[in-house]
Design a protein around this nucleic acid. Sequence first.
RNA 1: GCGCCUGUAGCUCAGAUGGAUAGAGCAACGGACUUCUAAUCCGUAGGUCGCAGGUUCGAAUCCUGCCAGGCGUACCA
Length: 554
Amino acid sequence: MKETINNLILKAAARAYQKGDLPSGELSEVDIEEPKSDAHGDFSTNIAMKMASVQKISSRKIAEVIIDQMDDPGRIIEKIEIAGPGFINFFLKAPSWYPVLRKIHDMDSKYGSSNVGNREKIQVEFVSSNPTGPLHIGHGRGAAVGDSIGNILSFCGYEVQKEYYINDSGRQIDTLGRSVYLRYKELLGKPISFPPECYQGDYIREFAVFVKADKGSELLDMDEENAVFYCAKLAAKKILSGIRQDLSAFGVEFDNWFSEQSLYDAGRVDDIINNFQQREIIYQKDGALWFNTRKFGDEKDRVVVKKNGQTTYFASDIAYHMDKYHRGFDRVINVWGADHHGYIPRVAAAIEASGKHPNQFQVISVHLVNLLRGGKPVAMSTRMGQFITLRNIIDEVGRDAARFIFLTRHHESPLDFDLEVAKTKTNENPVYYVQYVHARISSIARKGTDREKTDVTWDKQAVNRLRTPEEIQIMKAMARYPDVVQHSANSLEPHHITHYLTHLSALFHAYYNKHRVLTDDPILSHGRLYLVFAVKKIIKSGLTLLGVSAPEKM
RNA sequence: GCGCCUGUAGCUCAGAUGGAUAGAGCAACGGACUUCUAAUCCGUAGGUCGCAGGUUCGAAUCCUGCCAGGCGUACCA
């Protein structure tokens, strides 16, 4: 629809120039917007104001000239007005919206999708929590955002892979093993001192109990390094399997789980260090190896191999990102916690150093979640090992509510997550507000006659009965859905979908309360069913992009 | 100190490419269920868009400076 208007304007402006009514043939780009106020029409353009400086005549005059040349072959326009400093406002006839309905039904679950992605290969990496403890609420937000961005990009024609990077190497894993090992020794009555950097949680003790049950006191006879290694492997494996289960319960399925250790095993980390050394962007200083990230925009150089010979996390991260491009991804998107944002420039530097374009690497910073219960902060002490896990939240408030709430805010905005609010079933909690639309329409369908249930197809006469302001508003809103999806994909911001769904739901609920769908007039009923079934399809489509279910009954 | 993020109604937050009278929900007040699900709707009230300049036909949006809060500034991950 927008495009149609766009063409009308461009043609009119071109004709005006040919006739000599416009001094310059240089046409500005046309901006079409949907005015907030109905008094300003269905669509509006500011082209006259934009052209004024080039054309050297007043914007109202330009608007007049363009309107004079306006043609309307499809007879969609009710009237055109010039308003304010030179806005051209278009008022459309109700029937001009009907093709949207048909399109929604024809395309069905594909409505809103596109192929602008052109099969470009994108990888979205998210969560990637270290397997040293269970997922918490912050991971949940990252999971919801990453998963949804992946869904939206696929919907827009990108070829998307969702990946989880497992940090199964390095000091943290060692610390995990040490923590379990110490608790194990403690269980066997040995005196221990438990360092503060070790993991305090009860789950560590559970692993120790498991080791004891499985191996008895066997580990005491091994040398400590091997015993710790054994504990580390075992605990990491169990934790990772718990993480997989939690994510699955949260409705998140990864296409690939990528192990950091595998990079070391395959010699990839050494390879990239050697390669960069040869290219002299890695150099030696103070007994360590430094990457010259400053040359690529970072504020200082970074160590990749420490004085003690160990590689840093950054070193394997370089190898990891090189591997991503090696696997053929055109663009790589990382969803990280906002506390890692200082890390972005150095990874970006590594990517630039390898000859990739900066826009092939994007980081989504997900800000922290304040967990509340009834308005009061919930104590989240990792140190004490006492915290509410993602699993607890899924169990208490449900997956749909949690995911939806995570996606109501811009990801760079801190989010308050109130467990009590998340459980309420009122307007305060928008998930149910939106899902209720789907359930209500499903209910209408169940109440309709057999013919109405199965045979609600395009019928010109029936659709022609859709004339009320509420019906037209709904059709307008539905016409916008593809734009909203596209905008979400371009900006990597799922929350636009969430807000759009809430808005469409409000329009539907108002309509439902004011008008009956099933009436004594079968033709009118047919038209209205055709309308609300379209709404149902979009609600389901949007919820699916967010990873939220669309229930038939509530 | 420097860097990034945030600052919009009493509260929680939307406001893409600068547009006309800045929008929702909650809370407050008043209404609507014999009717397709009241997990809903209708109405009233609520604002110096952190502050000060600048850019222009036009700024919550762009630029500069300041204020407040969060995060980051490792040979940690």
